[in-house]
């Protein structure tokens, strides 16, 4: 019994240590500027204030960045997941020449470093006159999101018994009819999981946003918030921590309500291959 308690205490000490930076982020964002420089530092804020959040929303470009990020991530997710769902169905359930090499190509690109593609992509998007648009980022994000989504969905699709589709065909459905009536409903958890991962990947992306967009109107959160750090004369940590918290809000929501979908995605794509 004592051993059990000790083990629990130890385990939770480690868990809390891992989570401490996040705790500190929230605490800092709620402290008045003056309390930040107190020695010794206060663990819980003496005075809780939301002034940084208010300033973030009213005095900075944060809302524009946030809006850009939402549009960018949602569009990327919708485009990528739609294309990948059809593609995964094709790769798993149809037979034609080149199908297997294609599956390997998907896996290969899934591992490809962004810095290899970024130079030609930059030249291509500048050439098309798309630089500095959210659309250019959608195009750039498909380079990592599409292979990723395809790989995940492929493994979800392979988990749906082939007999279900066969049964629908015998019952009189066409291939696309069987896809709509039987496969899509079965694939739905996988699609949700893939969409969440794609959304998170797009939400968090930094490098392409750094290279392809440099106007405040089109910047997503990652480069926007980072710019607040770099461009400010006097680093306001509370403000930055408030921005960090706000930036993580969508992830916290996903986490709170849809965690099972995230763990499922882990199993399907991350390790099972």
């Amino acid at each position: 019994m004592i051993r059990r308690v000790l083990f629990n205490l130890m385990a939770w000490a480690i868990v809390l240590a891992v989570a401490f930076p996040l705790f500190w982020m929230v605490v800092t964002s709620l402290k008045p500027q003056s309390e930040l420089f107190r020695r010794p530092p206060t663990i819980l804020p003496e005075v809780t204030t939301f002034e940084h959040y208010w300033r973030l929303l009213s005095e900075t470009n944060f809302l524009t960045y946030f809006q850009n990020s939402v549009v960018l991530s949602v569009v990327t997710t919708v485009v990528v997941v739609s294309i990948a769902t059809l593609g995964a169905y094709s790769i798993v359930r149809f037979k034609y020449w080149g199908r297997e090499s294609l599956a390997f190509l998907v896996l290969f690109t899934y591992l490809l470093p962004s810095v290899v593609l970024i130079i030609p992509l930059y030249l291509m998007l500048v050439g098309l006159g798309l630089s500095n648009t959210i659309f250019s980022l959608v195009i750039a994000y498909t380079t990592f999101a599409l292979p990723y989504a395809l790989w995940l969905l492929r493994s979800f699709m392979a988990g749906i018994p082939e007999d279900l589709e066969s049964a629908a065909l015998v019952d009189g459905a066409s291939r696309m009819g069987a896809f709509r009536d039987v496969i899509l409903p079965q694939l739905l958890p996988g699609i949700i999981s893939t969409a969440l991962f794609t959304f998170i990947l797009s939400w968090n992306e930094y490098l392409y946003a750094l290279v392809l967009v440099n106007s405040d109107n089109t910047r997503p959160l990652t480069t926007g918030v980072m710019n607040m750090l770099i461009s400010s004369f006097n680093v306001e940590w509370s403000l930055l921590m408030a921005a960090s918290v706000m930036m993580s809000v969508p992830l916290i929501i996903v986490f709170a309500f849809l965690q099972s979908y995230l763990t499922r995605g882990f199993g399907a794509g991350g390790v099972k291959g």
Binding site: P161, D163, L164, S166, A167, A168, D171, V182
Partner: peptide, 11 residues
């Protein structure tokens, strides 16, 4: 009409 070994009922 066909009956499958796995039954293949639409879940």
């Amino acid at each position: 009409a066909m009956v499958f070994q796995s039954y293949a009922l639409y879940p």
